[in-house]
Amino acid sequence: MKDETNFRALVEQRRWSAQAFSAVWRRACQELDETPGAPAVGEVPLSERTFQRWMLGGLGTMPRGDYRCVLEHLFGMSAEELFGPVTPGADQGQARAGEPTA
């Protein structure tokens, strides 16, 4: 059974497929590199398997390093919030890198 997390809710709310999320992810990496004071992450590869694991929830450990930086930049939430239970009434973060809806 899938755990309902803020990450999953946000992705579904924005109707992002794995392919669409990958494009948003790449833009978020570029944004971080261009943001003064933000960590330079370069290209952080994101496999479809990682995306699917994140969608399923129930992670044993939180994403670390550059993955964590990109996720937190993209959604404006900590990794703990993203992969924690859905927060009722929350605006579910703010996608930053272009935010396509499909």
Rank of each mutant, 00 (worst) to 15 (best):
M1D: 10
M1R: 09
M1A: 09
M1T: 11
M1I: 04
K2Y: 03
D3R: 10
T5N: 02
N6H: 00
N6Q: 08
R8K: 14
A9W: 00
A9G: 00
L10V: 10
V11Q: 02
Q13H: 08
Q13D: 07
R14E: 05
R15Y: 06
R15F: 00
W16E: 04
S17Y: 02
A18Q: 11
A18E: 09
Q19E: 14
Q19N: 10
Q19P: 00
F21W: 14
F21G: 05
A23T: 11
A23S: 11
A23I: 08
W25N: 01
R26W: 01
R27T: 12
A28W: 01
A28Y: 00
A28K: 02
A28F: 01
C29N: 02
C29L: 03
Q30G: 04
E31Y: 00
E34L: 13
E34W: 04
P36H: 04
P36R: 03
A38D: 02
P39H: 05
A40C: 06
G42T: 06
P45S: 12
P45L: 07
S47Y: 08
S47Q: 14
E48C: 05
R49D: 13
T50F: 13
F51E: 10
Q52S: 11
R53I: 09
R53P: 04
W54C: 03
L56M: 08
L56N: 13
L56Q: 14
L56I: 00
G57V: 02
G58W: 03
G58Q: 06
G60Y: 05
G60K: 14
T61C: 08
P63F: 06
P63L: 07
R64V: 08
R64K: 15
G65C: 08
G65S: 14
Y67G: 07
R68T: 07
R68I: 07
R68E: 15
V70I: 13
L71K: 10
L71Y: 12
E72A: 06
H73C: 05
L74T: 14
L74R: 09
L74Q: 15
F75I: 10
F75Q: 09
F75W: 11
S78W: 01
A79Y: 06
F83N: 02
P85Y: 01
V86A: 09
P88D: 07
G89Q: 13
A90G: 12
A90N: 08
A90V: 08
D91P: 06
Q92Y: 07
Q92F: 06
G93E: 09
Q94F: 15
Q94N: 15
A95H: 06
A95E: 12
R96C: 12
R96E: 11
E99I: 12
E99F: 13
P100K: 03
P100I: 13
T101W: 11
T101A: 12
A102I: 08
A102Q: 07
A102M: 04
